[in-house]
Design a protein around this nucleic acid. Sequence first.
DNA 1: CTCCTAACTAATAATTATTGTTATTTAATA
DNA 2: TATTAAATAACAATAATTATTAGTTAGGAG
Lengths: 144, 144
Amino acid sequence: MKETAQLLREKGLKVTPQRIAVYNMLLHTHEHPNAETIYRTLEVTNPTMSLATVYKTLDYFKHLGLVQELNVGEASSRYDATVQCHPHTVCTSCGKVTDLYCDALTNLHEKFADQLDFDVTCEQLIFYGTCSECRSKINEDLPD
Amino acid sequence: MKETAQLLREKGLKVTPQRIAVYNMLLHTHEHPNAETIYRTLEVTNPTMSLATVYKTLDYFKHLGLVQELNVGEASSRYDATVQCHPHTVCTSCGKVTDLYCDALTNLHEKFADQLDFDVTCEQLIFYGTCSECRSKINEDLPD
DNA sequence: CTCCTAACTAATAATTATTGTTATTTAATA
DNA sequence: TATTAAATAACAATAATTATTAGTTAGGAG
């Protein structure tokens, strides 16, 4: 936990329990939680935590490049402590968002920069569909 | 305009002036407007038009595959009458969303389907950055 | 062509995610 | 330890979207 405090300080942020809690939660999950989920998870151990602070903290973190905001078409944004752009899969059945680490699908803009007439700062590739678990479930429910 | 009425009928929808107006507007623009913009544009010529109807109409259209909902990280969704998945650029300076027709950046999932363990139904590739017009403006404002 | 009815629309209320406000508290430094 | 600028919690406000409902209309039956 020392590292988080150090990191926040380096970014010019005051170190508060709330900020440490939000950042550490994002570091240790792969669920890409939204603000509501972060708040619900943290209020159990951090009674002194409000949803507005979660929003504000995420906003600071985003602008300082500590987290990435992810928009997969849901009403609310999801957050990821991995700030490097990388593709995601989104299961339209269970809602699960998964990181995809695949060099061939990453930094696509670099390969096409000359054809674009557009300065790309960030790219987002999302595959929508059905994850393997949901596919199995659907097959169980529909025996032939 | 006859074709739109025909298309709606084929999809099992009643043909109403509101629905024709919304669909035709989306057909004839490349601006990827959101519900609010569609409403504002149409109320000029269609005084009998309400924002709630625009939302409901877009929802019907989306589920019937007549339009595509596009989420570029803004508060509201944008809509596109081109339902085939294709990449977009989003200028973070002026907000303009532009279609990108480039075979090498389209249907990426088909090329990687075997590596995924995920049934992809649709993919979305978005390049965020600065469009050429905004780049020129920035250069004007900052002479060296 | 007129009538009928289910489907549609407009108006408006309600909801949900997010942001603003403010009084109080706290982290960091002298 | 005292100071103070910044952060927080509580709550109000806003914006986008959805739900409700009473009145209207499209389109088929007669």
